[in-house]
Design a protein around this nucleic acid. Sequence first.
DNA 1: ATTTTAAATGCAACAACGTTGCATTTAAAA
DNA 2: TTTTAAATGCAACGTTGTTGCATTTAAAAT
Lengths: 139, 139
Amino acid sequence: MEEVSIQFAKDVLKSRGLKQTSTRVALISNIHNYAAAMPYTALQKSLEADRTTIYRTLNTLMDECIIHKAKEKGNETYYAVCGNECTSHKHSHNHIHFQCTVCKKVTCETLINEIHLELAKHHIESVEINVNGVCDECR
Amino acid sequence: MEEVSIQFAKDVLKSRGLKQTSTRVALISNIHNYAAAMPYTALQKSLEADRTTIYRTLNTLMDECIIHKAKEKGNETYYAVCGNECTSHKHSHNHIHFQCTVCKKVTCETLINEIHLELAKHHIESVEINVNGVCDECR
DNA sequence: ATTTTAAATGCAACAACGTTGCATTTAAAA
DNA sequence: TTTTAAATGCAACGTTGTTGCATTTAAAAT
């Protein structure tokens, strides 16, 4: 289980040509291993690295499209690993972000149906959808 | 122009049974008078009140559904006045939030078409949509 | 295997955000 | 005009996010 996440972390760092430092491997594998999108506070607790290093590492990994912010609301930011659709230079997410109002878990979910937004007089470049509700486990 | 916003502020405070303090009237009328959703920093600059008072007033007005956060991303939070659909106890927004990537303005926009989201195994309670693009003036 | 070097890290410091406690002021009711 | 409950200002605190700089480390060069 955990070894899979560690291997995933090493592979993705290699594929992006990034140094395989212990903080980076730990950070990626911890997010990858987490059941849902990982809150920053949990991430910080799970690592021994300095707070500054964590912030810098998170930014590096987001720039390289290895992870993305799944939710940024109020005080807590949630991070999730990007899927294969994200290249090294461009995030491309066709999922939405769901937060369960009971267990508070944030997850990336795929819509069953296709949706198309139309706005008058505005050119749409990107759409971000956040949904609140109750997840399967909490019903 | 400005008198309209001041009158609007007084009316809405009265309708909610809130004290008409100078800070509240100024805060509501400034947001109401602003061309788009108002960034917190601009809001703070436009008022003489203490930072604490501004935060407490913003929270009070959000609790009473007089204003709402139009965007909360990165460092800056944007506030906008609620429409008539919001009652004193429940926010009810059928608009989306749009940010122009050129002029950075955040606005509340209504979708031309109706959309319906479908998620497997999840009960949907509320949906929040943020769109980035180019507004009419910047094209 | 050792040296080199460019990048990553840790530490200190800082600014801003958001919140709480408490004394003072103020709007609105009595 | 007095009363009183609420709103405000001030001080303080914890957290977030960022920058500069010295030190350490991963990976390339020798």
